[in-house]
């Protein structure tokens, strides 16, 4: 049996852990929100400021998801997988980089012009060295994500997997991340496509779209 032990969302400039609002800041731009949410967490990680919006969202989402749970205390780095997906790839940063080429191309932007850089940033932060994949699809494909995570988790090698959706385009953003493990923690849910759909659609304070 595989369990969903934790989940987190970032939507409409608000961060949720297990469906509970952690912080919200609708003043200013998305960039402003990403900085204020990070600084509110009190984490010392200077590299965050250099990340593009996608990596910042993935980083913040994972910090919310794990919330002081150190996966490396329970698993070897090779036993933790990371499976992500989104709709816009790295288009948001691609366009920003394209703009920079009109004057002087920015190397710091260029290094983020791949969708799976967000996965790299999450892996570096959390010392994850297991299986990883990144899918691009028009919307969060619950069945594909469920089936792929099940396949990865059925191998003996993988004991835990962070999976979900990290999408950004301009000011629009949508993050849903969840942690699956073979062991059951408090408030664990069964990893099924139906359950995933419910969690993805979870709105504020535990309400679910009908």
């Amino acid at each position: 049996m595989i369990y969903i032990n934790r989940f987190a969302h970032i939507r409409n400039r608000a961060v949720f852990r297990m469906g509970e609002l952690v912080c919200r800041d609708i003043r200013g731009s998305l960039d402003d929100f990403l900085i204020s949410a990070f600084e509110g967490l009190g984490i010392n990680y200077p590299k965050y400021y250099k990340m593009d919006a996608s990596s910042k969202l993935g980083f913040l989402g994972t910090e919310m998801l794990l919330n002081n749970l150190r996966l490396e205390d329970d698993y070897k780095p090779e036993e933790v997988a990371l499976i992500l997906s989104n709709a816009h790839g790295s288009l948001d940063t691609d366009l920003r980089f394209f703009e920079s080429t009109k004057t002087m191309a920015s190397p710091a932007l260029f290094v983020y012009t791949l969708p799976n850089i967000v996965a790299g940033e999450i892996c570096i932060r959390n010392n994850i060295k297991g299986e990883n994949a990144f899918f691009v699809s028009p919307r969060f494909d619950v069945k594909q994500m469920h089936d792929y995570v099940e396949m990865v988790m059925t191998s003996d090698k993988t004991k835990a997997c962070i999976a979900g959706w990290v999408d950004v385009m301009g000011s629009q953003h949508d993050v849903f991340l969840y942690l699956t493990e073979k062991k059951k923690r408090e408030n664990a849910l069964e990893h099924t496509a139906v359950q995933l759909q419910k969690l993805y659609q979870l709105k504020e304070y535990g309400t679910v779209d009908s």
Binding site: P46, T103, M104, A105, S106, P107, A108, V111
Partner: peptide, 17 residues
């Protein structure tokens, strides 16, 4: 300051710009 190789490229761009 903990800068890296990408930062070095940005510094080159800064000098030029």
């Amino acid at each position: 300051l903990g800068l890296d190789s990408i930062d070095a490229l940005e510094l080159i761009v800064l000098l030029q710009q």
